[in-house]
Simulated assay, not measured.
Amino acid sequence: MLRFSFHSPNPNHPSAKTLDPSPVFRSVKTFAPATVANLGPGFDFLGCAVDGLGDVITLSVDPGVAPGKIVISSISGAPKLSHNPLRNCAGIAAIEIMRKLGVRSVGLSLSLEKGLPLGSGLGSSAASAAAAAVAVDALFGSTLTAHDLVLAGLESEAKVSGYHADNIGPAILGGFVLIRSYEPFEILPLNFPADRDLVFVLVSPDFEAPTKKMREALPAEVGMKEHIRNSSQAAALVAAVLQGDARVLGSALSSDVIVEPKRAPLIPGMAAVKVAAMEAGAFGCTISGAGPTVVAVIDGEQQGKEIGDRMVEAFLVNGGLRAKATVSKLDRVGARVISSSNQ
């Protein structure tokens, strides 16, 4: 198992120096995937990346921008987002990477294409931050480590949605991740076997669930019985990931007795949607991140589509909400460069 233990930076590593590197490319385009955080009982310490959905960043050297600065030139798909890089998760992550690299001689412009809706429970802010961090690093030769990239994204997350890495971790690293510790920060990638089938059914209703509001619903204290129950299910979930057991993974994912019971009533129709998913054959179902997206797990795409149809219907009938279902697999790569140019 790979392990990333993030402590004080090595003084001999490029990220620890003020280098003011020259760009290797004139522009790069990057993609970062959607993520499912918590996975039921793994609140703030388990998450995974899913394919097909995500955000795209185009980053360019711009002579019209002051050296050492970055501007957000355009945003599509999310008109409410700020163009101020100090108030935008992509801008914050990009600035942090520029600081780590010591970029001072060139200015950059950033274009953000939002493929994820805001407040969806699919790691929208993390996807933007991850794509931006990788873009800046790639523009200057991809010299930074997973340490640098994740911590830059975490800095962004801390300012816009809270100090938790169960979205930004998988958005950058791909696959499943376990956040073992925040002080010091330590993240463990969890390898779901490549020869095993795992399908996520993501159903997103036309309803916004702000992370701040959903966190306010959490209990201030947790009973010993509930603590033991969630701890055992989180452990079972990790074991299921490593063993490639989608059935046990789904069962554990469905068994949160601390967070989901408090948040589910805030999402119209959620209880009925979970019942519909399970009756349609899902191995498990829970809220993705802070919601309102609901995630179900199965091992076949066709059955996944059928489960998604039932969940969409349940949202409409029981919650009065229109919803969209997406059937995805595990994204094992995470944030990556999709094109580069010297033109």
Results as ranks from 00 to 15, higher is better:
residue 1 M to P: 13
residue 6 F to S: 12
residue 6 F to C: 14
residue 8 S to A: 15
residue 8 S to I: 11
residue 9 P to I: 01
residue 13 H to W: 09
residue 16 A to Y: 02
residue 20 D to S: 10
residue 20 D to I: 09
residue 22 S to T: 14
residue 26 R to L: 08
residue 27 S to P: 01
residue 29 K to T: 15
residue 31 F to I: 03
residue 37 A to N: 04
residue 38 N to H: 06
residue 39 L to Q: 05
residue 42 G to H: 02
residue 47 G to C: 01
residue 50 V to W: 02
residue 54 G to K: 00
residue 61 V to T: 04
residue 64 G to R: 06
residue 65 V to I: 12
residue 70 I to R: 10
residue 83 H to W: 01
residue 92 I to T: 07
residue 94 A to F: 06
residue 94 A to H: 03
residue 96 E to L: 09
residue 99 R to T: 04
residue 102 G to C: 11
residue 102 G to L: 10
residue 103 V to H: 15
residue 104 R to K: 15
residue 105 S to T: 13
residue 107 G to Y: 07
residue 108 L to V: 11
residue 111 S to D: 07
residue 114 K to H: 07
residue 116 L to A: 08
residue 118 L to T: 08
residue 123 G to I: 04
residue 131 A to G: 03
residue 132 A to D: 13
residue 134 V to W: 01
residue 134 V to K: 12
residue 134 V to I: 14
residue 134 V to H: 03
residue 135 A to C: 10
residue 136 V to D: 10
residue 139 L to G: 12
residue 146 A to W: 14
residue 153 G to V: 02
residue 154 L to R: 03
residue 157 E to T: 05
residue 158 A to D: 10
residue 164 H to G: 02
residue 169 G to Y: 01
residue 169 G to P: 06
residue 171 A to D: 06
residue 171 A to E: 08
residue 177 V to Q: 01
residue 183 E to I: 05
residue 186 E to N: 04
residue 192 F to D: 01
residue 193 P to S: 02
residue 195 D to F: 03
residue 197 D to Y: 01
residue 206 D to C: 08
residue 209 A to M: 07
residue 216 E to F: 03
residue 217 A to F: 04
residue 231 S to N: 08
residue 232 S to I: 03
residue 234 A to R: 00
residue 241 V to I: 15
residue 241 V to S: 09
residue 242 L to M: 07
residue 242 L to F: 02
residue 243 Q to K: 14
residue 244 G to E: 09
residue 246 A to L: 05
residue 248 V to R: 02
residue 248 V to P: 08
residue 253 L to P: 03
residue 256 D to F: 07
residue 258 I to F: 04
residue 261 P to V: 14
residue 264 A to S: 15
residue 267 I to S: 10
residue 267 I to G: 12
residue 269 G to E: 09
residue 271 A to E: 09
residue 277 A to C: 12
residue 277 A to N: 11
residue 277 A to W: 07
residue 279 E to A: 09
residue 280 A to R: 15
residue 282 A to C: 11
residue 286 T to N: 15
residue 286 T to L: 02
residue 287 I to R: 07
residue 291 G to I: 07
residue 292 P to I: 06
residue 297 V to M: 11
residue 299 D to G: 04
residue 300 G to L: 02
residue 308 G to M: 10
residue 310 R to T: 06
residue 314 A to V: 07
residue 319 G to P: 10
residue 322 R to H: 01
residue 328 S to R: 14
residue 330 L to Q: 01
residue 332 R to E: 11
residue 334 G to K: 03
residue 337 V to L: 15
